[in-house]
């Protein structure tokens, strides 16, 4: 499994404003990477650039090739879905490129399996527009997983979920990575979720990369001070692992 996402001197500009500059990283497949950083540091822009939807300078490759959205599962930040479609219909659209006039029974089975895995089988016939924000987020994530992508890019995919569903989603992502050897990159604000579930993190600061590697090496008290402007305590428990407790803003 030598696949890797390689960012080679990537820069993103919005007009004359520099969003990110000189990003270099090599992220091996078969892991969950947490993309962290304060608001406005370009987490969404970086994910957009990886998908090719946002123009950038430099080179981005996955498994040695340029990235084609058709082979990628990308979930942008949540926007409410108002369509008059059932949850199952929405999940099936994850594979819209291959859908024909008649529904493929194999695909229908795969879609229902995923809904069951997510624990939302009872929602299958419900119209998507009647679901809460968190439920919609689960459905759209299930939809992206149906694509069985080798590269799964998630932008705040767990932001509207309760604790139990956050756990569930990360368990599913871990199982997916184990089963397929895919690379999952998730932009996330909750550092404790990143600490617990991500195999490595990529931390952005204003204008560039603050660090990448194992959580404990990148997310340190001094990094939180300089990047987030926050004093924090790190507590390590026997079962919880490292927990970050923000104490106060840096004076």
């Amino acid at each position: 499994m030598n696949d890797a996402l390689i960012l080679d001197d990537v820069s993103i500009r919005l007009g004359r404003q520099v969003i990110l500059e000189g990003i270099n990283a090599r992220l091996a497949a078969g892991q969950i990477v947490g993309l962290v950083g304060p608001n406005g540091t370009g987490k969404s822009s970086l994910l957009g650039a990886i998908t090719g939807m946002i123009p950038f300078k430099g080179e981005i490759t996955f498994a040695g090739r340029g990235i084609d959205l058709r082979g990628v599962g990308y979930m942008p930040q949540h926007a409410a879905v108002r369509a008059q479609l059932s949850v199952l219909e929405v999940v099936l659209l994850g594979r819209h490129e291959g859908l024909g006039w008649r529904m493929d029974p194999g695909l229908l089975a795969a879609a229902t399996d995923i809904l069951a895995d997510f624990g939302i089988a009872e929602l299958a016939p419900r119209p998507i527009h009647t679901l809460s924000g968190g439920q919609q987020q689960l459905v759209l994530l299930a939809q992206r997983m149906l694509r069985e992508p080798r590269l799964l890019l998630l932008d705040e995919a767990t932001s509207a979920l309760d604790l139990a569903h956050q756990m569930k989603v990360f368990d599913l992502l871990k199982a997916y990575v184990r089963r397929t050897g895919a690379l999952v990159m998730i932009a996330i604000h909750d550092l404790n979720l990143a600490a617990r579930h991500a195999n490595s993190v990529l931390m952005l600061r204003r204008g560039g990369l603050a660090g990448s590697g194992r959580f404990g090496d990148v997310v340190t008290p001094s990094a939180l001070r300089s990047v987030y402007g926050v004093e924090a305590e790190f507590v390590t428990g026997p079962t919880s692992g490292t927990v970050v407790l923000p104490v106060c803003a840096v004076a």
Partner: peptide, 19 residues
């Protein structure tokens, strides 16, 4: 028909699904 159905998910979702 399918492309139009995908479009109903909103532009951001439709684009991210490769449409």
């Amino acid at each position: 028909a399918w492309a139009l159905t995908v479009l109903k998910l909103g532009d951001a979702n439709a684009r991210s699904l490769g449409l």
